[in-house]
Simulated scan of single mutants.
Amino acid sequence: MDRIQISATDRSPRVDFDFASGRFQLSGESYPEDAAAFFGPLLQSLRTYLAAAASEPIVFEVELAYFNSSSAKALMNLFMPLEDAAGEGRAVTIRWLFTKGDETIAEAGEDFASDFSHARFDLVETSQAEC
Rank of each mutant, 00 (worst) to 15 (best):
D2V: 04
K73I: 06
G87W: 15
S55W: 13
V59N: 11
E107W: 14
V15S: 02
F98L: 04
E107M: 09
D10M: 12
I94T: 12
D18M: 06
F121V: 06
S55R: 15
A54H: 15
W96H: 04
D34E: 07
G109D: 09
G87Y: 14
D18G: 06
V124I: 14
P32C: 00
A36Y: 01
G87M: 10
G87R: 13
D115P: 02
L46D: 02
L43S: 07
E103M: 01
E103T: 11
A85F: 08
F121R: 04
E103Q: 11
A91V: 15
L64D: 13
S69Y: 08
A91K: 15
N77E: 00
S27L: 02
F38S: 04
D10A: 10
A129P: 10
L42K: 01
D84R: 13
F38Y: 14
L78Q: 02
E29L: 00
E56G: 15
Q25D: 05
R3L: 03
G40T: 05
E61G: 04
D2F: 02
A37P: 06
E83I: 10
Y66N: 11
S70C: 07
L123M: 12
D115M: 14
S30A: 00
G109A: 05
Q128N: 09
D16F: 02
A20I: 07
F19S: 05
G101A: 02
S70L: 09
M76Y: 03
S70Q: 13
S55K: 15
A54N: 15
F121Y: 11
S27Y: 05
D102Y: 05
I4L: 08
R47D: 02
S45T: 08
S117R: 14
D102I: 07
D10S: 12
E103C: 06
P57K: 11
E83K: 09
L82G: 03
M80N: 05
F24D: 01
E63S: 09
A106V: 01
P13R: 01
F17L: 04
R95F: 04
R90A: 09
R3P: 11
A74Y: 05
S127I: 11
A35T: 05
G40S: 01
V59F: 05
K100P: 09
Y66D: 10
Y66R: 10
Q25T: 06
E29A: 00
L97C: 13
S27V: 03
D84S: 12
W96S: 04
E63K: 10
F98K: 10
A52L: 13
G87T: 13
A85R: 13
A106K: 14
M76G: 00
S69H: 12
A52Y: 12
L82R: 01
A74M: 03
L42Q: 06
S70K: 14
A108F: 08
L123H: 12
L75K: 00
E88V: 05
L97G: 09
D10E: 10
Y31W: 03
D10Q: 09
E29I: 02
